[in-house]
Design a protein around this nucleic acid. Structure first.
Length: 273
DNA sequence: ATCCAGGCAGATG
DNA sequence: CATCTGCATGGA
């Protein structure tokens, strides 16, 4: 944790919204801010009032990871619809879509299916603690080799439930995979690859595409998004709803999805000022 | 206690 | 093609 840099607070970047909007699970509150672990890296982000101070092991990694080069203000203007999307943008204006590691998102979102976020976080943390390199104060996300060598029972004992078999088989299937090759594929071709993994369906695949490969022509449809569109798309199956919403929101669909998800999931809690 | 969670695979109409 | 069911676990 040797490198330090600061980022000015702006209306379009908020650490809490960015970490707590459901795209990432390996973070926690610490004194004065948050600790976020990503791959083999870790940062403590301290809220200084007008700035955030990042204390981390690799400043360049985290500047890229937090996507500080994208103009979110312009993006929000472009996506505003004067209606529901605009409301969601107003609520989640500080969200950035992180540039996560593909492998880490594959395992994380397999665990996420039909599961509560606090439990998802716990399962991932236990996997890292058990199989990831000890980096001194935290553990790295494990290698696919380490994940492939422990067997289904290991994941079951960590509380992964019926997903234990998925994790074991996917880990074994990913040994030797060159993700740089996958990054060169079109979104549709890459989705086909992901769907071939045991335990990865349309929703998890679209989350991996969005958060692990930064493809924005996707629209993960989960229980919250279903609630958002239950009137507009009555009795439409989730995968078909995803296709329709991608057509509707185009190449920024992934951002729109994330704003709507965060807005809907939090409406009962923090929104009742 | 019952319901539900960033759903999926497999079986059956 | 569409619809139905079982699934592990624990937080709310």
């Amino acid at each position: 944790m040797k490198e330090v840099f600061t980022i000015e607070k702006t209306p379009t970047f908020d650490v809490w919204q960015t970490l707590d909007c459901g795209q990432v699970f390996r973070f926690k509150q610490i004194d004065g801010g948050y600790r976020i672990c990503a791959g083999r890296h870790c940062a403590d982000i301290i809220d200084l009032g007008t700035k955030y101070r990042f204390e981390c092991d690799d400043a360049e990694f985290f500047k890229h990871y937090f996507d500080f080069d994208t103009d979110y203000r312009a993006l929000q203007v472009e996506c505003a619809d004067g209606g529901m999307v605009s409301e969601a943008i107003e609520y989640g204006r500080g969200i950035h879509i992180l540039r996560q590691d593909p492998k880490e998102t594959i395992f994380s979102f397999i665990i996420s299916q039909n599961n509560h976020i606090p439990r998802i976080k716990g399962i991932i943390e236990r996997i890292c603690d058990a199989l990831g390199d000890d980096m001194g104060g935290y553990h790295a996300f494990p290698t696919v080799e380490a994940l492939a060598n422990v067997g289904e029972e290991f994941y079951a004992k960590l509380g992964a439930g019926y997903r234990a078999a998925y994790l074991d088989r996917v880990a074994k299937a990913l040994v030797g995979v060159d993700f740089e090759e996958w990054k060169a594929l079109s979104t549709d071709a890459l989705r086909v690859k992901l769907l071939s993994l045991y335990g990865v369906g349309r929703k998890v695949a679209d989350c991996i595409l969005l958060f692990g490969f930064n493809r924005f022509d996707v629209f993960p449809v989960d229980t919250w998004i279903k609630k958002v569109f239950e009137e507009e798309y009555k009795n439409v199956p989730a995968d078909k709803m995803a296709t329709l919403l991608i057509q509707k929101y185009g190449y920024h669909a992934g951002f729109v999805q994330q704003w709507l998800f965060f807005y809907k999931r939090n409406e009962k809690n923090s929104d009742k000022v």
